[in-house]
Amino acid sequence: MSVATPTSAPTTATGTRGGNVDGQAIAITVFSTVKWWGRVVLPFVFVAPKVAPKTLTTLQRLSFIHFARWSLITQIPHNGAPQPETKLRYPHLYFESNFNGGWEEYIDAFSHILTTGMWTFWGSSYGFPKALPTGPFKAYIKANEMEASHFYSAYPEATTTEIKQAIELDPMVAELRERADRMTPEEFATAFAELMSEAQRCC
């Protein structure tokens, strides 16, 4: 769909249905049914990364996730008839992710890197087969996943890694831009080489 930055990157968004894809970006949308005790535990799981941000470090290692969210749904908003008044018997966990790369690789990485975290999030869901081995877990996600009818990314050709690297590079470029027009060409060439060296090191 819309293209923020031209790229020669090959299409890596594979392993999922067409509605879940926009450029390199993939959408995962999953509901799972939660056991009674998940209603007690999951709110603490959700708060933990906010009061102890280091618990998000593992999630950040999954460098292909742009955004992800979890919601615990215990009641459905009612709008009047003919909507049935739905009294849920169980809580339901809504999960969505916006990421780049292949669906299979995403689940593999999620399972291998976030093994404990996966149980933390989905251990209270009926049928959760443990993160490893990945085969049963992939089957579980497939069974609970819904295809998007329309999925949009504002920068569909950019990977999360590219964005994070570009953000990290930005202040260094800004600093050089700020003084570039006061430098001699030779001074600039030296500073540009230093910037490139620094960019290769960090980004």
Partner: peptide, 21 residues
């Protein structure tokens, strides 16, 4: 319940700008 962003302080225009840069 929990919302995660890989670049939580960066807006869409800024993402596009730094990618272009």
């Amino acid at each position: 319940g929990l919302f995660y962003s890989a670049y939580p302080t960066t807006t869409v225009p800024d993402v596009r700008r730094v990618l272009g840069q």
